[in-house]
Design a protein around this nucleic acid. Structure first.
Lengths: 158, 158
DNA sequence: CTAATATTATTTAGGCTTGAAATATATTCC
DNA sequence: GGAATATATTTCAAGCCTAAATAATATTAG
């Protein structure tokens, strides 16, 4: 019934990784819910809307729906709804793609750009305050390790 | 129009923290979506259901709805729906609390315990595989820093 | 050219999530 | 005791999210 030392350490490693993941998730939820609440209170907006606008803000010419869902790692149908609402509010427009009548480019309007600029500045300040306990070096260190993790997770897709 | 060195470094610190948060979020989404997919494919279940069962599994005597939503950091109304569905599937029961007819304890059934045990073992293995690039020491190190962050975020609520 | 296949986006059904309002029960203060 | 207040939970409307089905258009193979 006894186990070998190697099995024991494998088991400890597994538990340590699980513990890390649970802390990770907890941290992420706390920060996300704080951001959600501030976006709601100060801008009457939501995190998904902010995420879509942030993605679009990096592409002057806009993004196709499929590119948008790819960048954000959410489903196609999801993006449709969020973009619909942003378009209703005049923050984005769908521009036809010449030569492909299936697709359209989604682009921030001038108004959308302005709204996003204000939200992005506030967002950065909120994060800065919440992560104040981390020095820039510490941030860079952890970020680099997460990059490594993301890369290794990406490779596993085969 | 020029800025002082201190302002410049403040700005750099803010950007470093923002970068960390973005990596953090990306990592979290990748892992979560992988877990979601595996839970669906291998157990025909979902992450929210798993989370509720995980919380309940730590309390033999069960938890009140409000405790459950507190532990999981989600809204009250949310938990109602998830518990409703788990109860329909026979994984949990609502037990009246003697002396307080408003409240009830939610508790895993025997069947719920068995289901959860199988899912938890698989879950730990998935995490172990995804975080294989992190050594136990590295995990403990990062987990400790996240604990510090969570603590500092908790204090800010005043 | 035409048929088969692939791509792009939307729709649909079902579940998750929130904040606010509603309901029921407890507690506290006179 | 009875009124005001607080607590526990559910309900509701709106939006988020997914996977699967559908529709429209493009591309490729024969």
């Amino acid at each position: 019934m006894s186990i070998q030392p190697e099995q024991r350490s494998e088991e400890a490693a597994s538990k340590a990784r699980l513990r890390l993941w649970l802390r990770f998730l907890k941290t992420s939820r706390i920060i996300e819910s704080e951001l959600r609440e501030k976006l709601r209170q100060e801008f009457a907006s939501t995190l998904p809307r902010f995420d879509v606008m942030a993605a679009l803000s990096r592409y002057e010419e806009g993004l196709k729906m499929s590119q948008l869902s790819g960048v954000l790692r959410v489903s196609n149908g999801n993006v449709t709804g969020i973009v619909d609402r942003l378009a209703q509010d005049g923050a984005v427009v769908r521009v036809p793609v010449p030569g492909d009548r299936r697709a359209s480019m989604v682009r921030l309007t001038k108004r959308g750009q302005e709204e996003f600029a204000a939200q992005a500045a506030a967002h950065e300040a909120w994060i800065d305050e919440m992560l104040a306990g981390f020095s820039p070096d510490e941030c860079a260190d952890i970020a680099a390790r997460l990059d490594g993790l993301v890369a290794s997770l990406g490779e596993r897709e085969s």
